[in-house]
């Protein structure tokens, strides 16, 4: 069943306009990889600060800075979502067969759900927090979960060419 869906996806995407465009030039792929790397640096770099502050570290960074840094996270994520989708459209069979890719996507979903959790349970309360004080236990959990999942995404992403089909 899943094999059939995967095959349908691969057959639909291969030969499509985007697929042909991505694979059409030798330079598109490296260019997108460069953008993907810049995106991941913005995403992970700012999340490192946000998550460590949520976990109660870096207390000389004010709580207000967490919201100020979010645009950098969004730019990084947006950049990588676009370039990542183009990779997938460019070579669907390779990614669909790659167990590393699937694990990476699972972790991205975990990280996004965790971000939603932050948005609902933590973000509204942050205005009341003292700017340089310790954080509540739930914020710590969410901070560490975010760091852990994005760390995994980074590692698995880099290992995609090496992991294969499991």
């Amino acid at each position: 069943m899943t094999d059939a869906i995967v095959e349908l996806f691969v057959n639909t995407v291969e030969g499509s306009v985007i697929n042909t465009w991505v694979m059409g030039s030798v330079w598109i792929w490296p260019l997108m990889e460069i953008l993907h790397f810049i995106g991941l640096s913005l995403l992970f770099g700012s999340l490192l600060v946000i998550d460590l502050r949520l976990a109660g570290y870096l207390r000389n960074i004010s709580i207000a800075a967490i919201h100020k840094l979010l645009p950098l996270v969004f730019i990084g994520f947006g950049l990588n979502f676009i370039t990542g989708s183009l990779f997938l459209m460019g070579d669907p069979a390779r990614y669909m067969a790659n167990i590393g890719f699937w694990w990476k996507m699972c972790l991205v979903v975990v990280a996004l759900l965790n971000a939603l959790w932050f948005k609902m349970k933590i973000s509204p309360l942050m205005a009341n927090w003292s700017p340089h004080a310790d954080t509540p236990p739930l914020a710590k959990v969410i901070g560490w979960l975010s760091l852990g999942s994005w760390f995994g995404v980074l590692l698995l992403g880099r290992l995609i060419p090496y992991i294969g089909t499991g």
Binding site: F37, I38, L40, S41, L42, L43, F44, G45, S46, L48, V49, L69, L72, F151, L154, L155, G157, R158, L159
Partner: peptide, 16 residues
Amino acid sequence: GLHVVGLAMVVGLFVM
């Protein structure tokens, strides 16, 4: 894998 994690830390933090 380590190299890309390090890269995200260096570039992310220094650019910030």
